[in-house]
């Protein structure tokens, strides 16, 4: 388990992270979402031991990560701004990785280069941005680490390649019970990828939850009656939002969906439909209950 405990990071007079605490359990795909400048990359760099926190600590299974090669060998970091040796090809970079990661597997490396269709002898400078991300992902995955950190890695990939990368990452995670931590500024990007999600805002974690719990905590019901009605009709149901257009109302409720459905059915609606809620909508309402305006957070 990765534990960040009251971590503070400052750059000069600017506080990027302020007493942030979180736990990332093993074997999950953990998503970190937040707007630009929220502190996602800073947190990643603290977790991976690149930065030293001004306060607090980051530990892997209770072992401090900073300046600890034994811990650092257990993870690989694929950053947003990629780095390759000048004029290097993938084979050359593989040797550099091998120099530091004992478990680096050339077999896995070759296998992945074939899957992605990249030429390991070509100069990486000749690759497109997306291909470079693929190259970095291949090199990272070939390290066979317990933890893999992707800092906005998928953001530059086309949809087909993104799916391919996700599949490969899933396979690795499932096979080795690895843990992946992915940052993005796109909720939609993380929605169908992650198990856990955390929202960063102004250097702190605002919201953290299991995605399934998130999605099932709220429900959206579309209902219509042959008579005039308003919100008061639905007493006994925990309504977060009620909007009516004509004779059709959309209600977002928290709590047991089936119980709510039964209660509504007793009132003989002419239309009763349960609609899927997007993660964005879930976030809006969850954070609204915390006192945040969602637009303020993610724009």
């Amino acid at each position: 388990m990765i534990t960040a405990s009251s971590v503070t990071k400052k750059f000069g007079s600017f506080t990027a992270l302020d007493s942030l605490s979180c736990s990332i359990p093993d074997g999950c795909i953990y998503g970190l979402v937040g707007s630009n400048g929220a502190g996602k990359s800073t947190l990643m760099r603290l977790i991976t031991g690149i930065y030293k926190p001004e306060g607090g600590y980051v530990a892997f299974d209770d072992q401090n990560v900073y300046e600890n090669p034994q811990v650092k060998e257990r993870f690989v970091f694929i950053p947003d701004e990629l780095y390759f040796l000048p004029q290097a090809n993938m084979n050359r970079m593989a040797k550099l990785y091998k120099a530091s990661y004992r478990k680096f597997s050339f077999e896995r490396f070759e296998e992945l280069t074939k899957i992605f269709g990249l030429d390991p002898k070509a100069n990486i400078n000749t690759f497109s941005k997306g291909m470079k991300r693929q190259a970095a992902t291949i090199l990272g995955l070939a390290c066979m680490s317990d933890y893999i950190f992707f800092d906005e890695t998928f953001d530059g990939l086309d949809p087909i390649m993104r799916n391919l990368v996700k599949k490969v990452v899933y396979a690795d995670i499932c096979e080795r019970n690895a843990t992946a931590v992915i940052t993005s500024h796109s909720l939609r990007e993380l929605e169908d990828t992650c198990d856990q999600l955390a929202l960063l805002h102004k250097g702190g974690i605002v919201f953290e939850s299991d995605i399934n719990d998130l999605k099932t905590s709220l429900s959206k019901i579309q209902v219509a009656f042959d008579h005039e009605f308003d919100r008061t009709l639905f007493e006994g149901i925990n309504i977060l939002e009620f909007s009516k257009k004509g004779s059709v109302a959309n209600i977002i409720i928290r709590g047991d969906r089936e119980k709510a459905e039964r209660l509504i059915l007793e009132k003989n609606p002419v239309l009763l439909e349960v609609l899927p809620l997007s993660l964005e909508e879930v976030f809006v309402h969850e954070m609204g209950s915390l006192g945040y305006q969602f637009d303020d957070v993610l724009i």
Partner: peptide, 8 residues
């Protein structure tokens, strides 16, 4: 960042 992320 790359070099400082390596396990050394």
């Amino acid at each position: 960042d790359y070099y400082h992320s390596l396990p050394n």
